[in-house]
Structures are given as C-alpha cells and as structure tokens.
Write a protein that binds this DNA or RNA. Structure first.
Lengths: 213, 213, 213, 213
DNA sequence: TATGAATGAGCATTCATTCAT
DNA sequence: GATGAATGAATGCTCATTCAT
C-alpha cells in the first residue's frame, strides 16, 4: 500500500499557505478573504490550512506577525551614524517612506487591524518591541541635533516619529481616494518627489526654527 | 387601536436603512457588513433595502455619498475671513482635524474605499467636486499670507492640503495600532493637544521659513 | 384634489397585461415567468395584474384560453368544400402545419400544460369544444373519400387527426434538439418542404392503400 | 455501534444526487425544480450538490447527459438482422415507441430543452453522436428493402426517422392535452394499440407504394 | 382605477469548518 | 502529513403577494 511519490514537504506547504494568505488578506481584508482561495493559491487543500494554523483567524494573526517582522527587519538595518543630523532625519524619513511605498499591501493590513481596533494585534504580544529601536534611533538624532545647536530642544521623539510616518502613510494608503478627489496621482514619481520635498522641508523647518525665533 | 409607528413612511424607511448601513459599513467594511443586520437595525426587512437601493453595493455607494456630503457641508461652512493668515491656517487645520476625530467611522469607510481602489467612489460622479472649495479657500489664505509678506511663496495648495489632512487622518485612523506600538493613546485629550500643537507649528514653521532663509 | 391627467384605460391595461403574459409564459413557462417582468412589459404595475387576474396562475389560465381561442378561430375558418378528398386532406394538413410553424410559442404553452398534466387546462372547461369542428370536418372528408372509392374505409378520424397534427407539431416543437442531433434545421424552407411532402404522401398512401391491396 | 448507512460513499452520493435531480428536473423543469428538494431527496445536503456538479445548471446538464446515454444504450442494443425489411421497420418503430412510452419524464426533459432552444444540450458536446447509429441502422433497412424490391427508392432516412419518432413522441408527450381535447386517453393499451397499428401501416404503406404506382 | 410601499417565505449559492481515511 | 468528502448555518438576493392611499 506504499506510494512511491508522496509529496511530503511540511515547511514548504506551511510557507506556501502563508504567502497565499498574505496576498489574500492584504487584497481583501479579513472578512473578504476566502479560505478556499488561499488553499488553491497555495496549491494545497483547505484542510492543511487548519492543520497548520488552526483557524482563519489564526492564519490572519500569522500573516500579521510575518508582515511586522519584515518591517522591523528593514528598519533595524538602517545605519545613519556619520551623517549630519538634518541629513540623518532626511534619510530616515526617505527610507521609511520608500518602504511604505514599496509595500502598499502592508498598509491594507494595518488599516484592517485598525478597523478591528487592533484586536488581533493584541493577541500577538511579541510584535510590540518592533517599534522601539527606530524611536530610539530618532531620539538620538534629535539629541545630537540639539546638542550641536542645529535643532530646537524639547521635541518629543514619539510624536515626531508618528508625524513623520503619517506623512508617508497617508499618501500611500489613500492614493486612490486622493486621486479621485484631487485628480493627482501620488504614485507618479514627480508628484511623489515634490510632496516628499515638502514633507522633509516641513520636518526640518520645524526642527530648525528655534535658533531664529 | 392607534399605531405608534407609522406604517407608511417611505422617507423614514429609506433614511433608517441608510443610517443603519452607515453604522454597519463603517464598522465592518463592505465585505464584513451583513444585509440582514442592516435591515434589522433599520426596523424593516431585507426586501426594502433592495427596493430602495437595488443591491448591497448600491447601498454602499449611497452611504459613501451621504458621508462625503456631510463632510463637504461641514468644510463649506468654514468662515476664515478677517483672520490673520497664520490664524486662518491654524483654524482650518483644527476644524478639519476635529471633524476627523469626531467621525472616526468616516475614516473606516475611506480606508475601505482605498482597499477597493476607489472603485465605488468612481461610480458616483457627483462626489468629485467635494474637495475643490476647501482647496480654493486654502489657496486664497496662502496667497494672502504671501502678499502680506508672512508666508513663503510657491507653496502648492493641493500638496499642502493633503499634508494637513494627512496629519489628522493618520493619528485618528491608526489610533489602535499606534497605541499597540507606541503605548500612547492619541484619543486622550492631552496627547492630542500636544501632537496637534506640533502639527500646527510644523505647518507654520514651513510657511514662515522664507524670510529668515 | 382632482388630477387633470389620470390615465384610466381599463380595457387597454388588461390587454397589455395579457399580451405581456403571453410573451413571458410562452418564453419561460409557468415557473420561469416573472410577475414583475410581465407588469413592466405591460407598462403597468404588479398590483394591476392581481386586480385583473387574481393570481399568477389565474393569469396563466387566461393566457391559455386566449391562445386556444386564437387557434380555434383559425381552424374554424377553413373551407375545404369543393376540393377532391385527397386535395382536401393535403390542404387541411398544410393549413394546420402552417399555423404551428407560425406560432411556435403556442407549442411551448401546450408543452408546459403537459408538464403540469393539463392541470390548468381542466380549470377552463370552455376550451374543450375547440377541437370537435375540425375533427368533424376531417370525418366528412374521409367519408367522402371512402364513398367515392378513393380512400380505404374504417379510418378513425380522431387517430388520423392526432397523427396529422403530431407530424407538424413534432418538428416545430423539437426543432432545436432535432438540429442538435440530426444537424438538420427544420425551420429552413427546403427541409420543411421535403418533410412536408413526405408527410402528405404518407397520409395519402395510407388512405389510398385499400383498393390495391 | 455499527452504522447502517455508510458515511463515506462518494460514488453513492453522486448517484443519489443525480437520481433525485432526474426526478425533479423531469417533473418541474429547470426553473421549477428546487435545489433543496433535490438534496433532501438524495439524503444529503445542498452543499454536496455544488461539490459534485458546480451549479444547478451543471447538474441539469449532467441529467441531460445521463438521460441521453440511457436512450442511446437502449437503441444501440437493437438487433434487427435476419428480419424482413418491413418487419424490421415495424420492430424498430415499436421498440422506439415503447421506450418513449416507458420514459415519459424523458420527454419532459427534451421539451424543456426545446424551451431553452437546446442551450444546455449544446454545452455537452459528447451528446451529439447519439443519434447516428440508429439512423445508420434505418438507412441499411431501407436500402435492403429497396434492393429486394419491396420498398420505394429515394427515401431520406433522416426525415423518415424523424417522422417515425415524432409519431410516438407526440402521443406520449401530449397525452394530457390530447385527453382534454379528444377525450381519448392514449395511455390506455387499446387506444395505444390501434393508433400504433395506424402508424406502422402508414409508414409501410408509404414505403411499399412504389411498385403499384 | 391606479400605484408606491411593504412583506415573509423561499431562492441558489457560499461560508468556514470537521470528519474519515 | 496529506486529502477528498461532508456539513449546517449563513449569505445576498428574488419571489409572488398584500397593504394603504
């Protein structure tokens, strides 16, 4: 009764399911994604999905974790030492914005999480350390800028970080409605460049303002 | 034998369905909302929903239109004449942000639209004039500021508007994930005030920068 | 409170509903026809349909009666006196077959009735006198043919009539499946002519056979 | 603890669904048949129907195929060699007519197909070879009859076949309306025998006519 | 006579999930 | 580890019909 060609590839099956799930959840959200579409796209059957991830929601949390892990990895690899503080700010901003632009599906997932009031995020406690290294990095840049007399003092690094990320987030996440209302496509490189310049100038104008006041 | 609830009330039925739909679509998105939950919440039956709005998608578009109409109405009623340009900017920003803060469900709807690549928004042509009056208002403030020597010249009003809205949008729309990652609750008044101050200062620092350069 | 232009046309409304119903019932059958499609096609509303015909089934019976009435009218107007018996047979057959060919929807209705085991037909007792005049006509032709020595004797007029009608009925009613299986389109004039010739020859060969046997 | 009904029985489940579908579709037509009635009659649930047949229409096509297959099988098993040409014709006719009489639901299905203008039949390419063997058989009988000097020459086998089938088809398919109008029940054996005799005599009278002309 | 509004039961179909092998 | 078969509760939507004016 032995089969000659039994395809047993547990790692591969698991990863194929996860990849397919990322695609479907980011495209259609938690409610819109279909279990059987994920299984088909992963070239396996629905049963395996339950075998590895227990439930649709379990798979969704796994997707969330995978996405945040990728994001953290990228942010963690930033090296801004040796740059002027203002250049460091510019580079940090440009790097984060580029990531957002290159991973728009990621933002769909985050929006979906906010729709659910971060219910699933809370289940996965190991995500929450993700952000701190970048904020720490930003804090040290701000401190360096202040001590070198270039930046104003008293800037809250978290608020500043949130503002910086939000600038990039908004124009990527809302690119479709923005185009519908403004007629301007913020995926176009030239529109992107000019608004990014505006954003960087704004961040630095704020930081630099102190000495002249 | 008098009935408390009027049996024949087309206007009322239509509005009750629309109100219930706003609630459900903003809570669960297009895919997540349930037709029968909407009908129950509207104290009518599913059939009437189709009678007035043809399909679930038709109802969704009607919700979209209603929400944008409310937003436009609010923005259109702003009177900033007689204010100093910088105060006008501050008031405009505060007013828009307050609206976003007070209508977080509205942002869920917009996010949902972006998930669908604004497919449904495009169906409703009458939405797209919504934005222009506010941009026109902003443009005139910027021009006044420039001609009075307070603001730098050459600021693109659309990019500036998008940036301004985005600042308020991001912290409302992403308040749950932000709390999960930064530990800071941007619905709290004191956190809100300090980041709003940061944002206004940033906008004005950018506009004012010219003369000192 | 008087309206200036109230369109009151009871006869017209009734007839428009009936016409629309003939179209829908013959096209889709009793189960397949839609009440609202009938109302729309009749340029009135569903309520009027119930006002005039009580129910969908009532309307169906009315359609049935109207169709049989038209059929009877046509058959009743045949004048075959003065023709040779064999020519009379030929003319009778050709005339009936032509009617079937020109009113294929009529056959759909009859098939539908047989699907329902003539349940609705039975409700309408006044239909059943329809057939007898034609059978009487046929009987007299057969008798004349026999007495003139051209036709065999002992031919049952009902069986003969059923056979004659069936020849035309089958190729019209089954024209679609016949084309699918035989590749031959019995709506084409030339195919129609040759099989009609076959049928007439067959009918007459049978009648004529006696004297030579 | 032993179960009487086997829980896992793909072949059986599929066949039970198909059998139930034959019953429902032949009774009520495509539009009139109910999916949940089919599932109940098959002692399974609606989901399995979609599992095996994709859609209601898919199941309808499967029923169509099954019915035509049975018909073809029966016709294919006829052995008329060794019979006189006229006896062969008689046997062929009687056999086909008997099949139609014994499977009146089959005719409902065919009528339904004609109502739909054979739309579903066309989807199933493998049905269309069904007819040819019988026509070939008939052609050889006709040729044998001609070469033996018993039958006239130049008889088109397809037209002859269509006529022969139509004779039996019409009185079975229209038995209810025929009874309503003629008062004669063509399911009764004695009525059936006399009209069948008429039909066979007619077919043979036509074929035999030549030598006397 | 005419019509827009309202209804509840039923429709085909799909869902996430579990069972048995 | 892997898979085809099975399930019941829902899902969006349509049906013929009736109410109120």
């Amino acid at each position: 009764m032995s089969e000659l060609r039994v395809k047993r590839d547990p790692e591969g099956t698991r990863r194929r399911i996860l990849d397919a799930a990322v695609e479907q959840f980011t495209k259609f959200g938690l409610a819109g994604a279909r279990v059987d579409a994920i299984a088909t796209a992963a070239a396996t059957n629905e049963r395996m999905l339950y075998y590895y991830f227990v439930s649709k929601e379990g798979l969704y949390v796994a997707v969330l974790e995978a996405m945040y892990a990728r994001f953290a990895e990228r942010e963690g690899s930033l090296d801004l030492s040796g740059l002027q503080p203002s250049d460091a700010i510019r580079n940090l901003a440009m790097s984060i914005w580029a990531y957002l632009r290159e991973n728009p599906q990621w933002l769909n997932l985050v929006n979906n999480e906010n729709l659910h009031e971060a219910r699933y995020l809370e289940r996965s406690r190991r995500l929450c350390e993700t952000i701190s290294p970048v904020v720490d990095l930003l804090r040290s840049i701000l401190e360096r800028g202040t001590s070198e007399g270039q930046f104003r003092s008293g800037v809250d690094p978290i608020d500043f970080y949130v503002t910086l990320v939000g600038m990039g987030y908004y124009i990527v996440s809302n690119r479709f409605t923005l185009e519908a209302f403004t007629g301007r496509n913020y995926s176009d490189l030239c529109n992107l460049e000019s608004i990014s310049t505006l954003h960087v100038d704004m961040l630095l104008a704020y930081l630099r303002r102190d000495p002249t006041a």
